[in-house]
Nucleic acid binder design. Sequence first.
DNA 1: TATTGTTATACTCTATAACTATA
DNA 2: TATAGTTATAGAGTATAACAATA
Lengths: 144, 144
Amino acid sequence: MSNDSEAPSQIGTRLGYLFKHAALRLQELHDQVLAPFGIDARQLGVLLVLTGQEPPSQHQVAQRLGVDRTTMVALLDTLEDKGILSRHPHKQDRRRNVVELTEHGKDTVRRATQASDEAERSLLSPLSPPDQKRFRDALQLIAH
Amino acid sequence: MSNDSEAPSQIGTRLGYLFKHAALRLQELHDQVLAPFGIDARQLGVLLVLTGQEPPSQHQVAQRLGVDRTTMVALLDTLEDKGILSRHPHKQDRRRNVVELTEHGKDTVRRATQASDEAERSLLSPLSPPDQKRFRDALQLIAH
DNA sequence: TATTGTTATACTCTATAACTATA
DNA sequence: TATAGTTATAGAGTATAACAATA
């Protein structure tokens, strides 16, 4: 007696569809605000792993981002070429490459993070401030 | 005076990271529950476009999913080979292929949608029922 | 001329396998 | 033997270009 005759399963109400399109919109916003820094959202993700903690090895960076260590090589090559980070052999274990932000890298991360904050605010702007907080908390809960 | 000395921008709190990982978890849940039907989450998305409305052309299906029409061909080939849908030339415009669910396809969609509902419930289970509703509404708002 | 479906091709992203060096 | 970084290679997924049929 309710809505049996309506479309029972609109694609636009599925979580998978909604996640994909929310991520696409956020991607576009990031493309815009990060362009001045010469990096994209994914590269900022790499840089965020390098901030506020003991400089990790390449392998550790890859693990924290959930990508293969072979994929990490080109990713770091690009950022090293831009002068954003540097690689040095680990003192005690010379198999490892310690990855560190340069001064320019630290400055880039700081400013790019502010730009990313702006992109996130823009995405969440249809929600009231308390709803924004609830949404973020809920997303953090289900994403683990 | 607040948290300047703490990690200022943990990767695990960024919306992009959270969307990616929430989508990954949902993908895994879908892989499990959809396996009995021989389709994956993406293919179910195609089928959902075909339900509850005038049978669309291949091009229309592609547009609604936001993929190129050349990409649609192989996607539909697979589902047609499984006997889930059929293609017929449009009566008035024979350039078009009208895409329709078969009886088996309709049954598959109905049962696969229930399985997908279960996957979504599972993903949202850390939230209280009212929070689940709020999260879904918020996501729909920001995804457009 | 423009559009739909199709195929061939190329590009992007990523992982697997194999190699070097270090442990 | 095992691990970290690197390179070469292959696979999945996707779009662009070109073509045939149709409008």
